[in-house]
Write a protein that binds this DNA or RNA. Structure first.
Lengths: 187, 187
DNA sequence: GGCACCTACTCAAGAAATTGAATATGAGGT
DNA sequence: ACCTCATATTCAATTTCTTGAGTAGGTGCC
């Protein structure tokens, strides 16, 4: 049900094809509502049938044709309605690494260390990418100026949530490493 | 696939029935691998068939009988193997509220405020519950002492992740409220 | 006395997600 | 010449998840 609104929200940025959406999703929406390309194509089909988005086929010469989708007024209205309702489900996190950490005792601490280090460097990579998105958004303005004057601040606030999450992730990894070291010194 | 290991990890705490597991999942595992009772019962069936857990029926007088499940040695070994592998999928977060925030511009800022306040008080409630779990775990010891000496620290470290996540959540909510106020002062 | 909630599950229909492959073409590198 | 990657989807099989209901007695509260 929510994928529907995630797609509509993505289209607030403007017209896009399924393929483009699947890219956009990867860098922004995926941070709080992941979806595979297949899911997106299916959802776009449905939304078009329900009149919440409009499709037009763009003929291309040296590429496969593509269908570009735009929000309709009905789509905007539906999204506004959704945005004003309280969420139906609480936040859900699925993190395989945490299952592994839950079960780590009795295993090889050095292997666990490796997993944590991998996670940490992945989180740092993500932070770097977020930072670039942030810079493109504020576009030279100070944050304060941006937040007071920009048309839309929603995308910035969700980006902040993503950044905070990954920063916290890095701190947690440090902490786990410290605990592991105290218990089984690598000396 | 991971639900399997989440269940095995939960059984590291000792024998449990499906019903008990569904309670345990609610307070601890659900924080990084949510599952409904139906999912759990199905998974337990499968794990028992595969010989990773053992079931025994406990006759009860004034209650329906229950089946208690224990890890087998094969189950422990499988779990150890899993815990040493790198995760197959990155962390996935699904947060309806963030979709709403992404799409909030053009809507009623007071309504959005309400949603954020709801989220904040929910996060505080969760923090309070986490704190109680933490106290039961450390059981009078200092954190330092606990971390050096306890048999298992995995559950504590995942609890720390949950606490950090919710604290971050609260901070983010404050921030969003500040931004909303600056843009549309409530006077 | 009645009602709601707790224990302890099981069943089944339908919706959704996952996965892998298929299609067709072009661009860029070695 | 060949290989891989990018564009831009679609299809289909399988698995998984979600939802609601059903069963059946017990406990606690007003």
């Amino acid at each position: 049900m929510s994928l529907k609104y995630a797609v509509l929200a993505a289209l607030l940025e403007g017209e896009a094809s399924g393929y483009e959406l699947s890219k956009v999703f990867d860098v922004s929406l995926a941070n709080f509502w992941p979806a595979t390309p297949q899911q997106l194509y299916r959802e776009l089909e449905r939304l078009a049938q329900d009149g919440l988005i409009e499709a037009r086929v763009v003929q291309q010469e040296r590429r496969p044709n593509k269908r570009m989708f735009t929000l309709t007024e009905a789509g905007r209205a539906d999204l506004r309605g959704f945005a004003a309702e309280p969420p139906r489900r609480p936040t859900a996190i699925r993190d395989e690494l945490l299952i592994k950490i839950q079960a780590m005792d009795g295993g090889d601490a050095r292997v666990t260390r490796g997993l944590i280090e991998e996670r940490m460097s992945w989180a740092r990579g993500k932070l770097a990418r977020y930072e670039r998105v942030r810079e493109r958004l504020v576009d030279g303005r100070t944050e304060e100026e941006y937040l007071r004057t920009a048309d839309r601040v929603g995308p910035y606030l969700t980006l902040m949530a993503g950044i905070a999450f990954e920063e916290e992730n890095v701190r947690w990894c440090h902490r786990v490493l410290a605990v592991l070291d105290r218990r089984v010194p690598l000396g």
